[in-house]
Design a protein around this nucleic acid. Structure first.
Length: 772
DNA sequence: TTTTGAGTCCTTTTT
DNA sequence: GGACTCAAAA
């Protein structure tokens, strides 16, 4: 046991060995957060304070969950298989599968990922004849998810205007559709299991008594629903009763649907007299939450840092431990990170320090264009590589996925091995989704989303007309699309009947072992034949083969659970796996390749060398974020996360011009560059003035075409009709003053001070300016 | 019914 | 520059 604790610093040790009480660990970047979490579990188990079955540990990503499991099994000689360690969504899925009857779900309910949800909503709007211009499907998805995450069923949503009323109506219709089809979206997984527990007292008691220790990773990223879910599961509070004090905008205060105020009534059960002098040991678990408010970067999708404060208050958390010693980065990098995050007002407060030396300065590069930036990065990586740095230990980070293309292009051209994380995942590829849709129809013939996806793919003469007729028939009969097929006569009816026959044949094969079943489906559905004739189909065929492999691997890893029966439980488990874990694994995992990813997906990782590219106003911080409340602070936290990924060397770069949605844009350097103390920076390119550009390698463009000889003065460059000092008006930014002009012809651009709307470089060929 | 071409929006970030 | 939608043509 003492082996477990060896090497922990005093704060880490204190956290790991806390008595069984609620605790909040504020763990800065690189402070050994995961280690503390896993060691805590190992310590609880190895000292006999907890059995493996009484521990529940929850994370956000599958990667983190897996990491926790491997670390744990290396520390303890136990089988982690049956332990409740996983993502929120994974654990909820498990709960709902186990109690599908109580949750009013079919045994083989399917999980919709975001893309599935979107197409389900589109289908709904079409069937209800709702104008999707007025109610954009994306926006509606967002609305529905937001309501669910606030714990609000349609009946509980307050709607004050017609527009919202209509949206609520659509929300209700969407729910009915999902229920009928036996499908569940991501938010529903959580809300459904929350409601399951709150309405079913015996079940709730069962789990509250079972789980004595609940450990939460990345607590700052929890949304209100997840927090309520945890609160529910934790039951009574060991450190005192819980005041019913939820936020006003959520449904957790009021009755949710029919079984609402359980939260409070449950607590009054547990604490009959105020504060409870009861001899009975308090039922329920201790929550051990680990988080870092400075790394909260998911507010945009409902994460609420306020949960940290609420947790502290509502659970009367007596143990708040700060882990501030950083074991990852050199001093200069840490100083930069601290300096940046200091600009945020709303913080719990924390300052990282390290015993490592200050290390190298942070290198900054100003590129003329995004292409230029990419080429520079290639050269730099090559040089580092020659000096013996492993490419796999270098990461290239960017704000949004769209930026990766230019970078990939340059890397590819240079023959530098690289690997991109994120982007299109394996289970999100169209050929895979098609094959999965057939599998879903085998598991659940009522899955209309899957039906609509493949009924005419590969094409088999079932067009929009036939589908429309079918939809009408289904609505009249109240059944699924599949069930309505016999009711449709005529030409389309024959093709549909053939499709039903096909699915019937596939179902007969459902008893086959999973990989063989997949193979069978790919063959019989005509997918293979279709991609064989398609020109670009080779990759897709390879992916379909890979899907068969994935099925085999899944069985090998998870173990076959399927009994002999008509429908294999393996299939359902595999489909859930495909939705919940979009499949990070890619070819070339083990290769020594440069790592490319967004800043978001870099969270939790670390590298010897880190490049942060595209540090420009409008890009990072992103222009959409600047307008949102607290958006800028979230961007800054994102920057903080990016910087703290680096161990030894950090590069920052920005480009003066960049192609974005097909247009050349001129961006100012990111304000985050200014926020790093100049003393920590080493500019690799000359810098002229603060806020301006360095000597531009703007080549011949500067030579004015129709002017006199001699040095062109900037203010005369273009003959564009604008002059420095002139007042102008822009449709979006309002009134401003021209303060600089550069380039000529197509490339002419002007720097304009728009006052409140900020300083902008605008391309004169693009921007519509008028004299003011 | 299917294919093709033009036009539109997009773009944060993920389970 | 790409994914997606919608209209017209085959």
């Amino acid at each position: 046991m003492s082996d477990l604790l060896r090497g922990l610093n005093p704060e880490q040790l204190a956290a790991v060995t806390l008595p069984p009480q609620h605790a909040l660990i504020l763990a800065g970047a690189g402070s050994g957060k995961t280690r503390v979490l896993t060691t805590r579990i190992a310590w609880l188990i190895s000292t006999g304070q907890a059995s493996p079955q009484s521990v529940l540990a929850v994370t956000f990503t599958n990667k983190a969950a897996k990491e926790m499991l491997t670390r744990l099994s290396s520390m303890l000689p136990i089988n982690t298989r049956g332990m409740w360690i996983g993502t929120f969504h994974g654990l909820c899925n498990r709960l709902l599968r186990a109690h599908h009857r109580d949750a009013a779900l079919p045994q083989l309910f399917q999980i919709l990922d975001s893309a599935d949800q979107l197409s389900a909503v589109k289908r709904l709007l079409k069937s209800l004849n709702v104008d999707d211009e007025k109610f954009p499907p994306r926006e509606l998805c967002h609305f529905i998810n937001a309501q669910k995450e606030a714990g609000l069923r349609p009946s509980a949503v307050e709607a004050w205007d017609d527009y919202t009323r209509k949206r609520v109506e659509l929300y209700e219709a969407y729910e009915a559709q999902c229920q009928k089809e036996g499908v569940v979206d991501f938010a529903e997984l959580l809300l459904r299991s929350y409601e399951l527990l709150s309405r079913n007292e015996p079940l709730r008691r069962h789990y509250q008594e079972r789980f004595r220790h609940i450990l939460v990773d990345e607590f700052q990223d929890t949304n209100r629903l997840q927090y309520s879910w945890l609160r529910q599961l934790a039951g009574g509070q060991a450190n005192g009763p819980h005041p019913p004090n939820p936020r006003p905008t959520t449904g957790f205060a009021q009755p949710v649907g029919s079984g609402g105020a359980e939260q409070c009534s449950a607590n009054s059960h547990l604490h009959p007299g105020e504060g409870g002098g009861y001899s009975e040991a308090p039922r329920g678990a201790c929550i051990f939450a680990v988080g870092d408010d400075d790394q909260s970067i998911y507010a945009f999708r409902g994460a609420d840092v306020g949960n940290m404060r609420d947790f502290e208050r509502e659970f009367k958390v007596a143990n708040v431990i700060r882990l501030e010693q950083n074991y990852r980065s050199h001093g200069n990098i840490l100083d930069a990170a601290n300096a940046i995050i200091k600009h945020n007002a709303r913080r719990l407060g924390k300052n990282l320090w390290t015993e490592a030396g200050s290390g190298e300065p942070i290198r900054v590069f100003e590129a003329w264009s995004d292409l230029d930036e990419a080429r520079w990065i290639v050269e730099e990586v090559k040089a580092l590589s020659r000096d013996g740095h492993a490419r796999a230990e270098m990461a290239l980070l960017y704000r949004s996925n769209a930026q990766s293309r230019v970078l990939e292009h340059a890397l590819f051209a240079a023959g530098l091995p690289y690997r991109v994380y994120g982007g299109l995942r394996f289970f999100e590829r169209q050929e895979i989704k098609h094959a999965l849709a057939y599998l879903r129809l085998i598991a659940n013939a009522g899955d209309d989303t899957a039906f609509a996806r493949v009924v005419n793919f590969p094409t088999r003469g079932i067009g929009a007309r036939s589908l429309e007729l079918l939809q009408d028939a289904a609505r009249a009969g109240g059944g699924s699309l599949m069930a309505a097929i016999p009711q449709v006569a005529g030409k389309g009816g024959a093709s549909l009947a053939k499709f039903a026959e096909l699915v019937g044949k596939l179902r007969e094969a459902a008893h086959l072992p999973l990989p063989e079943l997949i193979e069978h489906v790919v063959e019989l559905s005509g997918l293979r034949a279709h991609y064989q004739t398609e020109k670009e189909g080779q990759d897709r065929l390879a992916n379909l083969d890979e899907l068969v492999n994935a099925g085999a691997n899944f069985i090998a890893e998870e173990g076959a659970v399927g009994e002999e029966g008509e429908l294999s439980a393996d299939l359902a488990a595999f489909l859930a796996h495909a939705s919940l874990e979009a499949g990070e694994h890619q070819a070339g995992e083990g290769d020594d390749a440069l790592q490319l990813m967004t800043v978001h997906s870099a969270k939790g990782l670390e590298f010897n060398v880190v490049f942060i590219s595209g540090l420009e106003e409008g890009l990072f911080p992103h222009e959409n974020a600047i307008l949102e409340a607290d958006g800028l602070e979230e961007e800054r936290r994102l920057m903080y996360v990016a910087v703290t990924r680096a161990r030894q060397r950090l590069y920052l770069s920005h480009a003066q011009t960049r192609m974005l949605h097909g247009q050349t844009r001129y961006n100012l350097p990111s304000r985050f560059l200014e926020e790093v103390p100049a003393g920590l920076l080493k500019w690799l390119t000359p810098r002229v003035a603060k806020g301006g550009f360095a000597v531009s390698p703007v080549p011949a463009l500067c030579v004015p075409s129709g002017t006199f000889s001699g040095m062109p003065r900037r203010s005369e460059t273009t003959g564009s009709g604008w002059r420095i000092g002139q007042s102008v008006r822009h449709a979006k930014f309002g009134e401003g003053v021209v303060i600089n002009l550069e380039g000529s012809g197509q490339d002419a651009r002007a720097q304009i001070n728009f006052g409140a709307a900020g300083m902008k470089w605008l391309a004169l060929s693009v921007a519509k300016l008028e004299a003011a």
